[in-house]
Design a protein around this nucleic acid. Structure first.
Length: 258
DNA sequence: CGAATCACCTGATCGC
DNA sequence: TGCGATCAGGTGATTC
């Protein structure tokens, strides 16, 4: 989504920005400050997008169903609308309203960004980081550990299951019981899965679309997510499902014994 | 204290 | 066909 937004917005001037309803997960602030501003770029930190504008930084989280689209016509659940000086219309749509759209402080920060762990695609993220977190939370399930945004920032429910499969690690395994080389494999698996998913334009399960309206393509490459009962592509064993911390978790009991 | 559970909200799907 | 129950990409508060 960051890539698509950057392509659509970088260098563009916002003519008007308005809320179409007052709140998402939190209140949406007045956006009049964006009128006439140029967009310098779009950054990402964890699952948050930061839209750098003249005089303001917009902080946005997609929640479960949030998406930005360049689209001429207004759709149900469009909650924020940017009209650009060149005539294009960019809308933030979020059926469930678990998303967030706020403005950063003058220093560019925001409380939501304060406690986040390292970026999984940055050099600072290593197996040692996961092993250290495991030492702090030895009884935590491995999958829950990698979904803790304070441990590593940006791994959600789909990619947590996929990364555990890729690393050959049982998602329910107690964090304290996994050896260091397991965390090295897991950190690498997280990097690979996220990089591949980003390159594929994300995963469209229900209504998610890229900024240009196209579906993601990574859902066709899921090894385990949503494949309960279907044969594992590696060994043929039926994929299992279980709940960890209230989230559906998919795994192969044969391939994932680590 | 840490970890599981609930709450937030809408829509799709499933079983009856 | 209709209806209630359940589930869904996330996060933060509450409960145990």
């Amino acid at each position: 989504m960051r890539t698509g937004l950057e392509l659509a917005l970088r260098g563009a001037t916002i003519a008007t920005a308005r809320r179409l309803r007052p709140d998402l997960r939190t209140p949406i602030p007045a956006l009049g400050i964006l009128a006439g501003a140029m967009v310098h770029g779009v950054r990402r930190r964890a699952k948050y997008l930061l839209i750098d504008c003249d005089g303001a930084v917009v902080l946005n989280h997609l929640g479960m169903t949030g998406m930005w689209r360049v689209d001429g016509r207004r759709r149900e659940h469009d909650h924020v609308e940017l009209r650009l000086a060149d005539g294009r219309r960019l809308a933030f749509n979020d059926a469930r309203r678990f998303g967030l759209l706020e403005l950063c402080r003058a220093d560019g920060g925001h409380p939501a960004l304060d406690a986040l762990g390292p970026e999984p695609l940055a050099d600072a993220f290593t197996g040692a980081v996961l092993a250290a977190a495991a030492a702090r939370h030895p009884r935590c399930a491995v999958k829950a550990l990698i979904m803790d945004q304070r441990v590593v920032a940006g791994v959600g429910n789909i990619y947590a299951s996929e990364a555990c499969f890729r690393a050959g690690i049982r998602p329910l395994r107690s964090a304290g019981a996994l050896a260091r080389n397991g965390y090295d494999r897991l950190a690498e698996a997280i990097r690979v899965i996220l990089a591949e998913a980003i390159a594929a334009g994300g995963s469209t399960i229900g209504d998610y679309r890229q900024v240009n309206g196209m579906s993601g393509r990574f859902q066709h490459r899921f090894a385990v997510y949503g494949r309960t009962g279907q044969p594992c592509q590696a060994c043929g064993t039926a994929i299992s499902t279980t709940a960890i911390a209230g989230r559906s978790t998919f795994w192969c009991r044969s391939c994932q014994r680590g």
